[in-house]
Amino acid sequence: MNAFRLVGDLCHLAAIVLLLLKIWKSRSVAGLSGKSQILFGLVFVTRYLDLVTNFVSPYNTIMKVFFLSSSIATVYLIYTKFKATYDGNHDTFRMEFLLIPCALLAIVVNHEFSPMEILWTFSIYLEAVAILPQLFMISKTGEAETITSHYLFALGSYRGLYIMNWLYRYYYENNFDVIAVVAGIVQTVLYCDFFYLYITKVLQGKKLQLPA
């Protein structure tokens, strides 16, 4: 474990907590893409299948359980409890345009052609693009609530910090996973446009509004 990865995990945790707080305090899922949350749930389910077979550390197990349960809870809140506030008309990104290419790529490009490894690879590829429905929805509505933009900033930062973690592990632990690194770079790059808006607007106290 290194500081980059620890802070990255804490940013990821903060993002998920921020999202739950936003939903619970505002009693609304307005502006949230249920499709992105379904994709994140799928990322965790396919990545953490080894929850009971692979024991790494208490920290690893606890975080996996929290990520799994919180992502499933978020999907539940969006599609059942606060369904009335879900803005389905703007959450129209076609998930199959992400699921099918990620599944095909995971079958073709992986470290080992075994069910667990292909599912892990699928979860890595899917996580890289899972935010697209949410970013697409914001581009359609033209704005995002401030707390939603904090959520996105924390979520985007987590994988950016993981890139630094991979650099560190490459140089100091001789540990390198090209699939995770390439997907992680793609994932972080997808947030760049949002990072620019967040830093130039939200941090200046303005609401996140996309140029019309």
Partner: peptide
């Protein structure tokens, strides 16, 4: 700990 795949990241 028991970790055959060597995957130790979240």
């Amino acid at each position: 700990g028991f970790n055959p795949s060597g995957k130790d990241e979240l």
